[in-house]
Design a protein around this nucleic acid. Sequence first.
DNA 1: CAACCGTGGTT
DNA 2: TAACCAAGGTT
Length: 367
Amino acid sequence: MVLDWSTEKIKAFRRALLDWYDQEKRDLPWRRDHDPYHVLLSETMLQQTQVATVIPYYEHFLQLFPTVAALAKAPEAQVMKAWEGLGYYSRARHLQLAAKQVVLDFGGLFPETAAELRTLAGIGPYTAGAIASIAFNQPEPAIDGNAFRVFARLLKIDADITRPQTRQVFDDLIRQLIDPQRPGDFNQAIMDLGSSYMRAKDPDPAHSPLAAFDQSYLSDTVLDYPVKSKKKPPVVIPYFALVVHSPQGYLLMQRPRTGMLGDLWMFPLVDRSALPAASLTAQLTEAAAQFAAETGVQLPFTDAGKPLVKHTFTHQQWQLTLIEAASPAFDLAVLPARWVAEADLATVALPTVQKKLFKALAVGGMK
DNA sequence: CAACCGTGGTT
DNA sequence: TAACCAAGGTT
């Protein structure tokens, strides 16, 4: 799509945006320099995650893994532990994979083009554009939720931003507007604008430095943009959480690398919706049978008498009933499982839902 | 392409 | 409070 703005108008737009950014840009840890590793780390953590949440994780992660080489050679378990609580855990695995790719495929130096950056694990069109523009000064759009919202409002773009093909519409338009001298600052200024005057809720378009360019503001239709379709509600799944405690600690299983909470450690779960029996007693027996089939150990599980633990993810709501059995320690060598004493809880990466389960049991000072 | 993948904050 | 939102990527 061709933008019908004059050259003068485009220059005035860039000037208004960058002058404002020079005065008002946020002071953020990842803006201390333009190191591509710092940009990659911050952009990855910021995916679908708020700035205030990311800041302490970013600082801690950089202390543990100061360079891309240090991250590449770190134990994966330590990387996952550093990501604990941040969510979308495949980001952590992909980030370390990307670090290894930089070391092995690019001699330890980040590639500088968006196309090459896209070959790194976990780097999609947004993150590639962000690194290329911020670290390497290339005129690449970085189209995140802010950019979608800001340009949808500025230009009154009606395309549904949840549809993949819509990205191209915005990409074409932003390429005509991006400042060729300061593309990184241009992209970051759009993000700052999208989190302030042009935020999703309760925006203040009248005081935006781009108010004069904002077609939605000028027509009093700001909240009509961006256009996006609604998400489906989460599916409810009932589980038993199997609490097996021995003198060596609690039995935790490492979840499969793919799927929900991949690589993290949890109590074994049994999907109750897959159990045929109706009564609680019959379901406890069936859960014990499934546990025995997996471990070779038959244990008498009983209801732990704890309240139902609920945890809602993007697409699922888990309703967890704690059931428990005491046991001597037994061999777990053939399973992705281990006994974890309370003192060792700090050494394994636990998802938030598992911390809720420990809290319900009043274990490890979790609250 | 649509579905999947976490968590915490806000209204 | 249920719904929505927050610097997306992978399959």
